[in-house]
Design a protein around this nucleic acid. Structure first.
Lengths: 340, 340
DNA sequence: TTGAAAGCGGTACCAA
DNA sequence: TTGGTACCGCTTTCAA
């Protein structure tokens, strides 16, 4: 039984060359508008036509192998659903990078341990020019990636990571801003929602820490309260709110805040009179609540400056780790913490 | 001026071979646990150690080039922020595929026209085994991808696409389900929200079409109403609701529905007495409204069966286009359309 | 202006 | 059990 594949193999530059009656070199020159070797207009047209007719597409692997490098930026796909804020940020970043001639590849980890060598190896195989979002890497993982020639390793982290470039996004400042605001509005016993969903722990931890520090500084007390993203959990928490004796709450983000505020109201508590509520992310939906939800706005850098920074890091020989951007947070004061 | 790169080049299998005192072939055998060529335990250990010490990672491009193919599934990144529903779906699909040994690559289009040859070429360069989400491709684009040896082209579309495999997600059925429900609840003049955001037109169009068909079938009238995702737009629309004379509205999805319901209430209309409201997507937040928001639940297939189907298509020689899955929709009846 | 040929890194056949 | 080597497709130097 002949194992002849039904599908013909993809056309190569040799096929194009044959069809156009030129050499493979000429095909390469013609299609890449190479300036060093000047190809006549006539030949170029013949080559273009042949390529078109055959549906020729250059083989990325071969090109990469030959060139030795790769205008590819790797964005490790987060393994938790991302909110609209971050989703928009990624799209913008992607646009910026593509504009600068990079291919942007979001690479899924599957079940591999985040930050581990396994994952680093999977990334390193692709020999990307940069990895954006190289968070929580072990030293070994960094070594592997560096060894594979990755030019720029950019982490998104709360503080500059030694040896890496960093986009500073300090979640503790989100918690701090929220709780400072509550303390300033007169709250003394402040709940801090810690989502029960384990995949959110990486954000929830720092937010809680920041909240605690701000509470201490503002002469208030911060009390962690667990909350799962379900109506039942919210109702249960609201049910024992009076015995908790909390007069304010930072609810992790706007979605948890909306959930909790509704539950608190259903339990007969007045917002903000009995308990002030603040979220984070500045979702439009938070403004629809009554009272309108106060929130901590997180201002991610735009795609343009960030992609410019990445491009610079990739080209530049500079080895010094640098901070490629800083994320600002600001409180948006609305009715749920007593405005108006 | 010597252009010596500061960074040493990435170690190759030749480096490993040298260090372990064996040939490149043996390195390949040892590291890939090749069964045809049996390598002694001792050599294998030496090779492993050498690879480890050097931080060797095989070059994906070289491997791909040699193998001629690629266990890669391409997921074109949508260029609009995705909701939690679809985001979760993608993560699940990704997990499933990685488990089956595929590398999942989300590839951003940047500014390239969707469905065009440009885009197809960019994808084809990578020689992926499959493309999931190959929507709206021109014939030419399909030809290019086929020619590049892509085994499985799966579109997500409202109906089986001739020549492609399809995950059937018919947005018209979302609109139809919503409006049929409203008609059944007694609505006769039904508004159908059409988001002003142009990137949503691909979904809004079919939803409106389905809504119209269902209205006709239910003896009602469907009236498209424009709405941007801002409070101002919602207030403006709500302000002229009485003159529109609509007694029900399908608000495109839950987010627009929440926005509109709030605006309608602020304009003094009773939901559902004056106007019944239904969204889509079954977001948790919709349940927090008062009245609770009715919605159309969209049941995407799980990652496991879908990745199994993709795997089968990639391996299988079968050329017949097939439907790899069907998305069901179901109305979740709550208070905003009169339940309770 | 074009062609011949080397070589990128890894795999797999054939020989030893 | 291991080594030598051809080859995957493309780019680029050198020669013609």
């Amino acid at each position: 039984m002949t194992d002849r594949t039904l599908r013909p193999p993809a056309p190569t530059s040799a096929d194009v060359a044959r069809r156009a009656g030129v050499s493979r070199a000429t095909v390469s020159y013609a299609l890449n508008d190479n300036t060093t070797a000047r190809v006549s207009e006539a030949t170029r047209a013949r080559v273009r036509a042949a390529a078109e007719e055959l549906g020729y597409v250059p083989n990325f692997a071969a090109r990469t192998l030959r060139a030795g490098s790769n205008r590819t930026v790797l964005l490790p796909t987060p393994d938790i659903p991302v909110g609209p804020l971050f989703s928009r940020f990624l799209i913008e970043l992607q646009r910026g990078l593509v504009r600068r001639g990079y291919a942007v590849v979001q690479y899924g980890a599957g079940d591999r341990a985040p930050g581990g060598v396994e994952q680093a190896r999977a990334w390193a195989e692709l020999r990307p020019a940069a990895v954006f979002g190289a968070n929580g890497l072990s030293d070994e993982a960094v070594r592997v990636l560096r060894g594979a020639g990755v030019r720029a390793l950019v982490a998104v982290a709360s503080a500059p990571v030694p040896g890496l470039h960093t986009l500073v996004l300090d979640h503790s400042r989100v918690g701090a801003a929220a709780v400072a605001h509550l303390a300033q509005r007169g709250c003394r016993r402040i709940g801090v929602v810690v989502p029960a969903e384990p995949e959110l722990a990486v954000f929830a931890g720092p937010r809680l820490r920041g909240a605690r520090e701000a509470a201490a500084a503002g002469g208030a007390h911060a009390e962690p309260v667990d909350l799962a993203y379900t109506e039942e959990s919210a109702a249960e928490l609201a049910g024992r709110w009076r015995e908790l004796g909390l007069d304010g709450v930072f609810a992790y983000n706007d979605e948890y805040a909306m959930l909790l505020q509704r539950a608190l109201q259903d339990a007969g508590l007045e917002v903000p009179a009995d308990v002030a509520v603040i979220g984070a992310d500045d979702l439009l939906l938070g403004r629809l609540l009554r009272p309108r939800l106060s929130t901590v706005r997180i201002e991610l850098p735009g795609g343009a400056p960030l992609s410019e920074a990445i491009d610079r890091l990739v080209r530049g020989p500079g080895e010094e780790p640098e901070v490629v951007g800083e994320v600002a947070v600001e409180v948006e004061w609305r009715e749920s913490t007593g405005r108006g």
